[in-house]
């Protein structure tokens, strides 16, 4: 009986230790996201910070990636068209505001809509550094320098948490896009 009691005690200890081991293993592994949340902002951009990247200037305002959209929309007035897309997998909307010469795309950061991308639609507006659609690659390099990444016909200039990209076809700028990047 003493032997059996001893055995039971050892088993009990083993059991407690094993459960504790699982708990510890569980608590300390895979802690990349301590909230356990799988929100849409996991690998998206998140949070307002001082935006030092390239800005787009129009109607007397400077628009930067990750900016809160509310004051921007107040200043720009009603968009020519508005489109919203609900994510298949997360609550919340991605919104597109199209004005006559550019489109603004948003992402959700909690209750705030922030600027995810801006696309220039015609040559009546340009970047703050003076690049317009139909300009040449040389002009881009003169304005932004040669510290760019180049893939196919895409030339990108990354600064802080944003990227300014130009598509150049036959030495003519055919697309200008500002994109917010993820990360702190």
């Amino acid at each position: 009986m003493i032997l059996l009691g001893d055995l039971m005690l050892r088993m009990k200890k083993t059991c407690v230790l094993s459960v504790a081991f699982i708990m510890v293993l569980t608590l300390f592994s895979g802690c990349a996201d301590p909230t356990g949340s799988l929100s849409n902002s996991d690998s998206e951009t998140s949070g307002a910070q001082d935006n030092e990247g390239y800005s787009f200037k129009t109607s007397g305002i400077a628009i930067s990636m990750h900016d809160d959209m509310a004051p921007i929309l107040d200043k720009l007035g009603e968009a020519k068209s508005y489109f919203e897309a609900e994510s298949c997998a997360f609550p919340g909307l991605e919104k597109t505001y199209t004005y006559s010469s550019f489109s603004l795309y948003t992402y959700e950061d909690g209750d705030i809509d922030r600027l995810a991308a801006l696309v220039i639609l015609d040559d009546s507006v340009g970047t703050a550094e003076g690049i317009y659609l139909n300009d040449s690659l040389d002009k881009i390099i003169a304005a932004y320098g040669s510290d760019y990444t180049h893939s196919l016909n895409l030339y990108s200039f990354e600064k802080d948490r944003m990227k300014l990209s130009f598509i150049v076809e036959d030495d003519i700028v055919t697309s200008i896009e500002y994109v917010a990047l993820a990360g702190e």
């Binding site: 608590l27 592994s29 895979g30 356990g36």
Partner: peptide, 20 residues
Amino acid sequence: DENMIDYIIPLFRYHSRWSE
């Protein structure tokens, strides 16, 4: 930045849902 084990044993990924 992901690990196979977090998919095979999802407890490792979701353990912090404990409080939610």
